[in-house]
Computed example of a mutant assay.
Amino acid sequence: MKQWFLLLFIIIVIWGCSLQEKDQLPKRLQKLKNLTVYSANEKPREVISFKKNTVYGDSKKVLIGSMGDIAVDSLGRVFIVDVQNQAIHVFQPDGQFIAQFGREGKGPSEFGFIKSLQIRKNRLYAFDSKQQKVSIFMLDTLAGDKTILLAQNRGKYQALQRAYPSIDKLYVRNNNTYVAEFILDSSPKKIKWQNFETKGLCYLLGNTGKIVSKKLIDLKKATRTLFAWPNSEALLGLHLKPFFGNALTVLSSDNSIYWAGPDYFLIKIYSPDGAYQDAFYYPHKKIPLTRESAIEAGIRDLYIRNMESMDLPRTWPVLTEMKIDDQDRLWIATTVEDMHVYEWWVLENTGELLAKFSWSRKEPIEEIKNGYMYTRETVEETGLQQIIRYRIEMN
């Protein structure tokens, strides 16, 4: 009889926990198809640690004016954008400087503004957002392969007639094609501190750079605010990312698209052609957005002074960053009560929790590859930035 009571007790506890988790799921998400809901008390399978390994940056041979995006190839070489000079610096895995290529200009291997670097197979792709082109370099020789003008046929697509005239982000796929993200806003009235929504319109580009498909995905991108600059009547639609967050997108090795918004720990998965497949969700505590927490988080004084005038959300973004490593594991940064750090979650691409760790907000994680994590850190004495490599250990 005692065994029956014990079994009944266990069933009630499990049933109660499942109800509690279901209650935590927002109503707007409960009708989402193929949704996996994980427990808020999910335990990591692994313990993760990091060991500082190598530093990349300024040296006697190279001076990087201002660091932009970075990329790491399969050999462990590190490519760093020099924003000031529109050049790309290359370092050996041990931190030794190898070469520099590229410069400001409009010709081959010249740039207006290098917004992102991506590596696919044996090529480096440098996206120039100012000139709307991608320059491709061979990794074995570092020589320029070709330059592709992007979305020159965008005028044929009606939805893009209301978009900004340029591609905001470019995602390189593993078959020499691209996903281009255009931005569409709601054309707000010119009212000081007014918020307005922007959408990301994603289209598939072929290997010649032309749009070759209908719209892949149409999702909320970010909230912008008509920010009033001090001593000026000019209003600028500014993305106050620390307060509102933004949509996060990564591509896996099979070109599947992973998307997350800032409001919930919800990851949606789309096929390479933009069809929704499934999603997973973790209940996650939301942290109240206050002036005190903004100060603790290191938000700019200009924003803090104007917080009372802004129409801000009640809570901080739940998710703030999402990366994908070379094993297709997701690395996701979440907001927690300690505003000096983010709590990072390492997940299988199906959502199972592998590990958790805390990392300083001041040291953003840029890349995870070849068993290493690469972060961007600032030397307090000089103000110069460095890329730091850490060996990842899981056990």
Results as ranks from 00 to 15, higher is better:
residue 196 F to D: 12
residue 262 P to W: 15
residue 384 L to E: 12
residue 273 D to A: 14
residue 6 L to A: 15
residue 382 T to P: 10
residue 39 S to D: 01
residue 92 Q to W: 02
residue 258 Y to I: 12
residue 82 D to N: 12
residue 368 I to F: 01
residue 103 R to H: 11
residue 130 K to C: 04
residue 337 E to D: 13
residue 108 P to I: 07
residue 29 L to F: 15
residue 384 L to C: 02
residue 22 K to V: 02
residue 246 N to R: 08
residue 3 Q to W: 04
residue 154 R to G: 07
residue 229 W to Y: 15
residue 310 M to E: 11
residue 242 P to N: 07
residue 171 Y to H: 13
residue 130 K to A: 05
residue 263 D to P: 08
residue 215 K to V: 15
residue 344 W to Q: 09
residue 362 K to W: 05
residue 303 Y to K: 13
residue 167 I to S: 00
residue 255 N to Y: 03
residue 95 G to A: 04
residue 18 S to C: 14
residue 211 I to Q: 00
residue 278 D to W: 02
residue 35 L to Y: 08
residue 39 S to A: 13
residue 230 P to M: 08
residue 381 E to H: 07
residue 392 I to Y: 00
residue 141 T to Y: 01
residue 343 E to K: 15
residue 395 N to Q: 12
residue 66 S to P: 03
residue 84 Q to Y: 08
residue 271 S to V: 07
residue 325 D to A: 09
residue 320 T to F: 02
residue 158 Q to D: 02
residue 90 V to D: 10
residue 316 W to S: 11
residue 193 W to C: 00
residue 211 I to D: 12
residue 2 K to Q: 11
residue 318 V to N: 01
residue 373 M to F: 04
residue 315 T to G: 03
residue 47 V to R: 14
residue 182 F to W: 11
residue 175 N to W: 08
residue 379 V to Y: 06
residue 273 D to Y: 03
residue 36 T to L: 05
residue 247 A to Q: 11
residue 172 V to L: 01
residue 379 V to G: 02
residue 268 K to G: 04
residue 99 A to K: 15
residue 367 E to N: 07
residue 46 E to P: 04
residue 358 S to F: 13
residue 85 N to I: 05
residue 360 S to L: 14
residue 350 T to D: 08
residue 25 L to W: 00
residue 101 F to S: 06
residue 18 S to N: 15
residue 348 E to A: 10
residue 36 T to F: 05
residue 299 I to S: 08
residue 166 S to C: 04
residue 148 I to Q: 02
residue 378 T to G: 01
residue 250 V to P: 10
residue 294 A to K: 11
residue 216 L to G: 00
residue 279 A to Y: 02
residue 322 M to A: 11
residue 345 W to I: 14
residue 250 V to T: 15
residue 195 N to A: 01
residue 354 L to Y: 12
residue 95 G to F: 00
residue 229 W to A: 09
residue 86 Q to R: 01
residue 256 S to R: 13
residue 211 I to V: 13
residue 142 L to Y: 13
residue 378 T to H: 03
residue 379 V to Q: 12
residue 290 T to R: 03
residue 370 N to D: 00
residue 245 G to S: 07
residue 385 Q to M: 05
residue 340 H to T: 12
residue 93 P to Q: 05
residue 232 S to P: 05
residue 111 F to N: 04
residue 221 K to W: 13
residue 186 S to P: 03
residue 15 W to A: 00
residue 262 P to I: 14
residue 31 K to N: 14
residue 129 S to Q: 11
residue 372 Y to T: 02
residue 362 K to V: 02
residue 29 L to P: 09
residue 326 D to G: 03
residue 55 V to R: 08
residue 207 N to S: 12
residue 300 R to H: 09
residue 36 T to Y: 05
residue 354 L to H: 09
residue 325 D to T: 10
residue 197 E to A: 15
residue 27 K to M: 06
residue 371 G to W: 06
residue 119 I to L: 05
residue 379 V to S: 06
residue 148 I to V: 15
residue 86 Q to V: 09
residue 128 D to W: 06
residue 193 W to F: 15
residue 135 S to N: 12
residue 125 Y to L: 04
residue 114 I to L: 11
